[in-house]
Design a binder for these strands. Structure first.
Length: 509
RNA sequence: GAUUCUGUAGCUCAGCUGGUAGAGCAAUACACUUUUAAUGUAUGGGUCUCGGGUUCGAAUCCCGACAGAAUCACCA
């Protein structure tokens, strides 16, 4: 951190000395009893009833307008902002007006924490305001906050002046972003509410929330490059999990019928608007169910989330209105490709698929097999077209080593991905529970790895051992929580729904 | 990783074809007891991201580094 202090920082530090001279602790230890918050007062105060006549409230000073022997100030607490009215008379004890003349008028800065007691009234202009009778200084701010002001025109449209917008500063100093930008807090409150809604829904249906290891010695359950670390005492490498799938299935083997976990996953890949190195996926597994049941359950869950957050199933995302009203459209991946290209790929061999890719100017290489080519065709030509929630079903077996083979369609598996707004939001299977087949699939993956596919899965022998003891039929799903939060809060970037998105470290000189 | 754009006061931004930096808010001082982007008067505040180069002279032009954003690639 730079030792260079700006003029304003020096001034604020000098004010600390002034506090000391006056015998006022700028960082008092004792608690300040609060009996309400800004939002309660603003929404419940009634000028005729004269309620809220003995309020005690604390917050951060966000604006102050000094007017000689009186002052108006605005404080912000967790729930919003409220205006204060302070007069010199009210803060004068005997002949001593130090509190007003020195502290309020000279030592107070935007960003400071204060606590006040008083009564609520409405000013001439109709603003609900706290008339301060007692004032306590609670904490000095030594760094000037960005000042963001708002004006309202007659229609009530809010114009923001000098908004704090630099993305680098906003993400690196999220604490500042949260203080000064109204709306940021709301996004994160919605995210939390969304997760609570999901948790409640799963619990209501018998789900059991569990924790499984983040440090794994085999990074399984997905195809991605892991972060590697090292355990000193054991002298072995460990991987930060890329998925928790194989652990949740072990719990199904152990006899739990419905387990779920909000899993922080880590993938050592590129970062962009929809990818952060650590991200959250909800996975859950339900015994004796198949992927059809999972589609029914998932669309009910999404519908419930939309209603909980928006009061309706129609959610505005960018320029689109997305309807989360169940049921969602369902279409096989091969049909989706046919719809988009007019080509029936269901009976094509690898060579024909490769030709088709070339025809559509999709880059292919020799390591790509039959399934990968179909996947490429889909993601290049179809994915973006599914704006309304759509279940894409029945993927090629090669791409899905943990999925049960389709009950009637050879070469395919019982898998679906849920596409919304052109992005994959969820991925689910009728889970493969045949240990012989699972071993064979892992061995296929091992061959792919030898062929140079660095996304192929490792063989997890303990997981195979668990399957050999027997796993009931089970359907499981992974839902991208960050991407769902982006949808539900209408944010175009994952950084807007993560408190502290990953960034390159700041240089310390 | 590639391409493009961006980096100037605490914040938001101007700064033209190169001539030693400007506004609003914020800060400081004074005035003001119902203001609300409060107002009025005055004042201070800058390693122009960093390092090279061209030039009599660089915030400005060139090269490089650093950081961020967008697009692409990668990432089921």
């Amino acid at each position: 951190m730079s030792e260079h202090l700006s003029e304003q920082e020096i001034v604020r530090r000098e004010k600390l000395k002034e506090f000391e001279r006056l015998g006022i602790n700028p960082y008092p230890a004792e608690l300040f009893e609060v009996n309400c918050n800004s939002n309660q007062i603003l929404s419940e105060y009634n000028d005729e009833l004269k309620n809220f006549q003995e309020v005690s409230i604390a917050g951060r000073l966000m604006a102050i307008r000094l007017m000689g022997k009186a002052a108006f100030a605005v404080i912000e607490d967790q729930h919003g902002r409220i205006q204060l009215y302070v007069s010199r008379n009210d803060l004068t004890v005997g002949e001593d007006a130090t509190l007003f003349d020195e502290v309020v008028k000279k030592l107070l800065d935007i960003g400071d924490f204060i606590g006040v007691k008083g009564f609520v009234f409405k000013t001439r202009t109709g603003e609900t305001t706290i008339h301060v009778k007692e004032f306590k200084f609670l904490g000095k701010s030594l760094r000037p906050l960005p000042i963001v002001k708002e004006t309202k025109d007659e229609q009530g449209n809010v114009t923001v002046h000098d908004a704090f917008v630099d993305p680098e500063l906003r993400y690196r100093q999220r604490y500042v972003d949260l203080v000064v930008n109204s709306g940021v807090r709301e996004t994160f409150l919605k995210r939390t509410k969304m997760i609570q809604t999901i948790r409640d829904f799963l619990n209501e249906h018998g789900g059991l929330e569990v924790d499984t290891p983040v440090l794994q010695n085999i990074p399984g359950g997905a195809a991605a490059r892991p972060f590697v670390t090292h355990h000193n005492a054991l002298d072995v490498p460990f991987y930060l999990r890329i998925a928790n799938e194989l652990y949740l299935k072990r719990l199904i083997v152990g006899g739990f019928d419905f387990v779920y976990e909000f899993s922080r996953n880590f993938r050592n890949e590129g970062m962009d608007r929809t990818h952060n190195p650590e991200f959250t996926v909800l996975e859950f597994y339900v015994a004796y169910k198949d992927y059809f049941w999972m589609m029914d359950f998932t669309e009910k869950l999404f519908e419930k989330i939309a209603i909980a957050l928006h009061g309706t199933t129609d959610v505005k995302v960018g320029d689109n209105i997305i309807s989360f009203k169940a049921p969602f459209k369902r279409i096989g991946i091969l049909d989706a490709i046919q719809e988009a290209t007019g080509e029936d790929v269901s009976n094509m061999n690898e060579e024909q698929l490769r030709e088709l890719c070339k025809k559509h100017r999709i880059e292919v290489d020799n390591s790509m097999g039959h399934g990968k080519l179909i996947d490429e065709l889909f993601s290049e030509l179809c994915e973006k077209k599914f704006v309304q929630p759509t279940f894409i079903m029945d993927y090629p077996v090669e791409m899905s080593p943990l999925t049960k083979k389709h009950r009637s369609k050879p070469g395919l598996v019982e898998r679906f991905e849920l596409m919304i707004n052109g992005k994959e939001l969820a991925n689910a299977y009728s889970e493969l529970n045949d240990p012989i087949d699972q071993r064979a699939r892992f061995e296929e993956q091992a061959k792919l790895m030898e062929r140079g596919d660095d996304e192929a899965m490792f063989i997890d022998h303990d997981f195979l051992r668990a399957l050999e003891y027997g796993m009931p039929p089970v359907s499981g799903i992974g839902i991208g929580i960050d991407r769902l939060a982006m949808l539900m809060t209408n944010q175009p970037s994952i950084q807007e729904v993560l408190f502290f998105p990953q960034m390159r470290p700041e240089k310390t000189e």
